[in-house]
Simulated scan of single mutants.
Amino acid sequence: MEIRKKNLDERVKQLQSFGSEEFAHINGTLTQHLVGTYKILEGWNREEALCLAGLFHAVYGSDSTRAELLGTDQRVEIAEMIGQRAEALVYLFCSCDKPYVLPQIGSESRVNFRDRFSGAVMQFPSELLNDFCELTIANDLDVARNKEQEYYHEDILDMFRRMYPMVSAEVRLELDGLFDKFCT
């Protein structure tokens, strides 16, 4: 656990050196949101690569309306910091054309992925789909929990329902409590 905390502290300092403290986020800074996402994943006992992907999930900008900390031309450097698998998840999350991809998850047997940076369309990498779903849920949970009043729009709850079969028992347990609290 001590090694994980030291690794987290070092990675947070790296994010801050990229300017994460300079970007406002829901009730705080981007750094706080990134750490919050990491902590949710860590609380679910996810592997370190997924937790680190949660910590860096916005480094290339998570959608076209958000600023990026680094350009995608620095993928090699990020991979050296957090590992290949974690960086692949970060790139997948940042490059995902979410309005195109997210509605397919859980409703289609084959999910097509569109890269918002390149426009390329391909089959979603099946070996990353579960981690992508857990990262997406952790991101949205941190956002909702940091609003003045925790709230989930019906479209977010619907997305969580579609992702439910693809996530771990720990995440399903969290979602069950969320559905009990916010769904009638």
Rank of each mutant, 00 (worst) to 15 (best):
L50G: 03
G19V: 02
F18T: 04
A24W: 08
I137E: 11
N139E: 10
V101E: 01
N112K: 07
H33F: 14
Q149G: 02
K5G: 10
R4D: 05
F160I: 13
A58G: 15
K147E: 15
M166H: 15
R116H: 06
E87N: 11
D73P: 10
H153S: 14
K181F: 07
A24Q: 13
S118Y: 03
F113P: 00
T29A: 13
D73M: 12
N27D: 11
E42Q: 08
L157E: 14
D142R: 07
T136Q: 05
H33S: 14
L128Q: 10
K98R: 14
S17M: 13
G106H: 06
D155N: 13
I105Q: 00
I26L: 13
Y60W: 00
D115F: 01
F23D: 08
G83Q: 01
E68F: 04
L41H: 02
E108A: 11
K147A: 08
L135C: 07
D63W: 01
S20G: 07
K181C: 09
S95D: 08
N7C: 13
A169P: 05
G177W: 05
R161L: 11
C51Q: 05
K98G: 09
P103C: 00
D180V: 11
L128K: 10
A49V: 08
T136D: 04
F117C: 11
K98A: 10
L55W: 07
A120D: 11
E108C: 14
M81Q: 05
H25C: 08
S126P: 07
Y151C: 14
V121G: 00
E21I: 03
Q16E: 15
A144V: 03
V35I: 15
